[in-house]
Every structure is written in structure tokens, then in C-alpha cells.
Simulated assay, not measured.
Amino acid sequence: MAIEQYQIGIHTDTKIVKISEESVTIERDGKQSVLAADTVISSIGYIFENSLAQQLKDCGAQVETLGDCDHVSNLMGAIWKAFESASKI
């Protein structure tokens, strides 16, 4: 599977504290860690909420919103947009 092949880290129940050009600072259980990263994919909840995406866009970051955060659609629409976005990375 590509996740293991490319050593992609998955962090659940984790808060993003800061994103820079070379890293992402995360917090879990009150402890912060800095991870080297050139790409960050964040999947947050089931309720429409795109304030983080807007803040990142305002900072000049490349941001892709998917699913209902982007526009209301069906599951196939969300999967297709995710595929298109991942293909650009």
C-alpha cells in the first residue's frame, strides 16, 4: 500500500498548531511535536467548517478543500475531488 511505501504518517485525535514550509507542529494529549513535512493533509470532522482553510489561504498556502467543506455533493464527488487534489501533489 502507498501509505507504507512512502512512509506517510497518520495522526488521529491530533491538533495542528502550526504549519511552516518545512514542518508541521502538532499537539496530542497536551504534548507538542514538530514533524518534517512538505505536504500536510488534514481531515476534520463531519460538520462544514473551513476556517482553517481560509486562514491558510490568507497566509499564501496552497489549500484544497474537499467534500461538504468545498460544496455539498455525494460520496463519489468527494472521492473524485480527493483523487484530483492528491494527483497534483
Results as ranks from 00 to 15, higher is better:
Y6M: 10
G45I: 09
L35S: 07
S23D: 07
S23E: 08
T12G: 15
T14P: 06
G67L: 03
S23H: 03
M1F: 03
Q62I: 06
S23C: 08
E4T: 15
L75M: 05
E27K: 13
S73Y: 04
A36S: 09
Q5R: 14
G30H: 09
E84Y: 07
I89A: 07
C59G: 07
G30L: 10
Q5K: 09
E27W: 01
D68K: 09
T65Y: 00
S85T: 05
K18H: 11
S43R: 05
S33A: 13
I19E: 01
Q7T: 04
T14L: 03
K81Q: 03
W80L: 09
V63D: 04
Q62W: 04
V63L: 00
I47M: 06
A36T: 13
T12A: 14
E22Y: 03
A78C: 13
A2T: 02
V72R: 14
E84P: 02
A78H: 04
T65V: 13
M1A: 10
I79C: 04
T14E: 06
K57P: 01
S73Q: 05
Q54F: 01
L75P: 05
V63H: 06
D38R: 09
I8L: 00
D38P: 00
S73P: 01
T65R: 05
R28N: 15
K88P: 02
I41Q: 11
G67Q: 04
I89H: 00
I41M: 07
S51H: 14
E4N: 10
I89L: 04
F48P: 08
F48A: 05
V17K: 09
Q62R: 11
A61G: 06
E27D: 01
E27V: 09
Q55N: 12
D38E: 14
K81V: 02
D58M: 11
I10L: 12
Q32M: 13
